[in-house]
Amino acid sequence: MRRAVNSVLLITLITGLSFSYISIAEQQPVRKWKPIKDDGIHDPASSAIGVLQNPAEALSVLPPDTAGNQVNWVKALRDGHIKPRTHLNKQGKLERLDTDIIMEDTLEMPNVLFPHRAHTEWMDCASCHDHIFKSKAGATPVSMFDILQGKYCGRCHGAVSFPLTECDRCHSVGKKRKASK
């Protein structure tokens, strides 16, 4: 009996330790970026090696994320870590929209919340409307099949914006949260 209790205690201890290790690791993600010369797309013999900036130098000082460039770009912009120009030659203003769009047609997945705010901090209305998305909510037949082929959200997500394997970042609200009519 005592041995059983002991082994249960031991297992609990080890489990606890592993989980605390995990939570520590999550708080301080180990971020690594391949140097340009080893990244698999630059020719190691190219004279650009040594001239081009290595990602680690620029990205390691930006707010962390777990996917893509391992940078939380939205936070980097909002918190002023980066100040990307709004226009080619000047820093101007962009038209910002705060409306959230809820997409309900998601089968067994949680509903999708599309935040206009995060998107209009980087882009114009004309970037997406109306050639990718119609301006009327629900009027565009968005599907994961198309997104995975680079249409709709997949124009950017999966290529430049966070990857399409981050399901719950979009499918982020339960089935109860409905689109406002």
Partner: peptide, 26 residues
């Protein structure tokens, strides 16, 4: 033995891989 095995499994399952990635979006 069993405890160590379980712990090892947990660590393998949940530990961050720490793998180096080539740059996303290039």
């Amino acid at each position: 033995k069993y405890s160590v095995m379980i712990a090892a499994l947990l660590v393998i399952t949940f530990a961050p891989t720490g793998q180096v990635k080539a740059e996303f979006g290039d």
